[in-house]
């Protein structure tokens, strides 16, 4: 007569739960392109795909403020503010990171392309 429960049953359960977890992985690490959005005075002035940057370059969203763009990262290099917290924020390279020069109202924000729409309607 078969028993109700055997040790092998635990193996079965473990395998299935492991499979369930494995299936969750694609949901978490979808390949996305790193995008940096630069705002000045609340308006977007530049959207940069950091993965596609071939050569580093700098630009000035406002006089006195300089931002450097390289492959996979973006950061303030100089600013006219007093405390230079923006420059001190260092390189931004991950989803969700932000750096801001508050007195100048300049913000750099990183987002992954996951949320970019397939198509725009206008």
């Amino acid at each position: 007569m078969k028993k109700l429960f055997r040790k092998n049953d635990l193996i079965v359960i473990a395998v299935i739960l492991a499979a369930a977890l494995v299936l969750l992985i694609p949901n978490l690490s979808k390949k996305q392109s790193l995008t940096a959005t630069v705002y000045a005075d609340g308006e977007i002035v530049k959207i940069i795909n950091l993965d596609e940057v071939k050569e580093s370059y700098t630009f000035s969203p406002k006089d006195g403020t300089e931002i450097c763009v390289e492959n996979g990262a973006i950061y303030f290099t100089s600013a006219v503010c007093r405390d230079k917290l923006c420059v001190k924020s260092g390189k931004l390279y991950k989803n969700g990171q932000t750096a801001a020069c508050l007195p100048e109202r300049i913000v750099i924000s990183i987002s992954s392309g996951e949320n970019s729409p397939d198509m725009l309607t206008y």
Partner: peptide, 8 residues
């Protein structure tokens, strides 16, 4: 297929 459509 579900598409994500952005409104400009």
């Amino acid at each position: 297929r579900d598409f994500s459509i952005g409104i400009v």
